[in-house]
Amino acid sequence: MKRAINRPRKSLWARMKKHKYIYLMLLPVVIYYIVFHYLAMGGLVIAFQNYKPKLGILGSKWVGLKHFEDFLTGKYAWRVIRNTLVLNLYLLLFGFPAPIILALLMNELRDNAYKKTLQTVSYMPHFISLVVVCGLLVDFSMSDGLFNNVLALFGFERTNLLGSNQYYRTVYIVSNIWQNVGWNSIIYLASLSSVDNSLHEAAAIDGAGRLRRIWHVNIPAILPVIVIQLIMRIGNLMSQGYEKTILLYSPVVYETADIISSHVYRYGLEKTNYSYGAAVGVFNSLVNLVFLCTANQVSRRLTETSLW
């Protein structure tokens, strides 16, 4: 952020007045956040209490960090945190570039009608309910199922993929990527579509081949989008919902499959322990926020794009 030198620093109020129309634009949005997010934010305090709905927040007993301790000193705490992080890191490594590559590839297709049809088809898996997708995965992963038929072709031994610590993560991650690659590529396609044609023409005149043009024109154009998406993704490293895990896992693969949310889900099955769930949620969110801020700072140094 550049500041003109030798200009006297105006007072805060004066500077705010200068930008009054900005604040006017922000006003409705700020009101929205206050009413629908921050008014309820005090509810976070239940993570530090033994919350009972009947007693309310003011009436429930304060227990400080007890739930955090319970969670972190649990026998399987390290295992579930590790599994969550590993899954998300793999998803980041493979699942993050995939939509970008798909968008770049699609952008290069000439035939408009074909291109649009393919793009429409690519997002369809996103709308299939998780229950159906997991039903398919369970069936295909059986020893005599589709995936094993393919593996057998390559000489691998047949084994139930979801019952094996070796293969469980692969099925989880690949199916995740496949279900979301089309939908996630939309944002990149949108940015690519605003790349000025004249830039491509100029590059072509200069003798740049296809790949060169992609590297020098397309990618820089969508780089801000990529960076922001990456930062936000990194800010989700501790998050992985429990629904898919519950549908796919079994105790025999707890070693790689059990993640924070599925562990907490089982814990809460006997009784709705709001405070424990809230505490784990707060812990996750804090770690996520740390990741996010770090990624943001790094990005600020390395590129010109950052969240703040």
Partner: peptide, 27 residues
Amino acid sequence: DLNTRTEIMSDIETYVNEMTLKFITGE
């Protein structure tokens, strides 16, 4: 009592359920 039981049994059940399957398959 319910809280105590949930706290202790949650980890025990995770362990027991995992081991049961491992004993059956021979792992």
